[in-house]
Design a protein around this nucleic acid. Structure first.
Lengths: 169, 169
DNA sequence: TTTATAACCTACTAATCCGATAGGTTAATA
DNA sequence: TATTAACCTATCGGATTAGTAGGTTATAAA
């Protein structure tokens, strides 16, 4: 019985790695950071890099960063509505930062564009939601693990400002 | 212009917080950890808690942890195929651990059930994939940030074993 | 040897979200 | 007055998630 279990383990491990290989080649890899958030951060970094406060057009960012212009428009609009950017219409218009890059933490950007930073709503600070299945969060084996993950992620994202990530070249 | 920008900021910040409030009440909160993975970890912890190596039935775990039995079946099957569990058919059958809980790291469980741990494929160690839009990963403002997040998450998940999370009560 | 059990397998589904597209309106500049 | 660029509304295909349904195979007990 032990032997057959071992053989089973071996066979299936091989089989599984093939499945995973196929997965990575042919299938969509689930990403925890949406393109929306990714594009939003890139756009903010692009604007921050320019340094001056002159409005930057969506079209310029779109071309330079290979982002669909229409999609980017909606993202920048959202960033304006949530207080990261100011805007100016008409010729010479565009978007500009209304805070110093040093004062824009990645946590706040991601919370606006992506939503919760925690991997699970029941440990989210800003988007908390109780699990339907868990009678007690203390008894849940996943809960404390996810709190640890949340805190370590929060530390990284809270320590990094727009100034930090746009300094990289 | 500065004044109108400020007013705009204020108005929209308020509006946005209302939108977010509605979001958390009425809408689905995106979770980075699928229920599949969550249930899988819970099931492993359940089996580990029992201590002895006697097979545990899917139905028992399903009832105790409030998980759809059919869904759980598919998860435990996957955990067996990827080498975490052994199984026994027929009466008195079920699933049992084939490794010590101390030797099962959360990183490996999550990689099997969820896929990549990184937030973005371009910084994933086990599921790497190049971004279509980025010409250079070094120049990407998101890249190094995501590496930091990945490493801190990896640290937490690598330090926690099944023994650690099932010890909690 | 039959019967009950529980793992195993295959296929399908509703709901949801993501990323994008299309087409138009408003406001500011030249 | 014409052009520009932000702003707004609606819609969509493709993909995933979290199941459900219904059966087959292997094992243990009767």
């Amino acid at each position: 019985m032990v032997i057959s279990a071992d053989i089973g383990l071996f066979d299936f491990s091989v089989e599984n790695s093939i499945i995973n290989a196929k997965k990575s080649i042919f299938k969509y890899i689930r990403s925890m950071l949406s393109k929306k958030t990714k594009y939003g951060i890139k756009a903010l970094a692009f604007i921050a890099k320019k340094g001056d406060r002159k409005p930057v057009q969506t079209s310029e960012i779109s071309k330079s960063e290979n982002i669909s212009q229409k999609f980017l428009e909606s993202i920048l609009l959202e960033l304006r509505k949530s207080g990261f950017l100011g805007s100016k219409k008409g010729k010479g218009g565009g978007y500009y930062l209304i805070k110093e890059p040093e004062d824009i933490r990645m946590t706040s950007v991601i919370r606006v564009l992506e939503g919760p930073i925690a991997m699970v709503p029941c440990v989210s600070l800003n988007y908390y939601e109780k699990c339907d299945d868990c009678p007690s969060e203390e008894a849940c084996s996943v809960h404390s693990l996810m709190i640890q993950v949340r805190d370590s992620t929060l530390k990284v994202l809270g320590d990094n400002t727009l100034a930090d990530i746009s300094a990289k070249k």
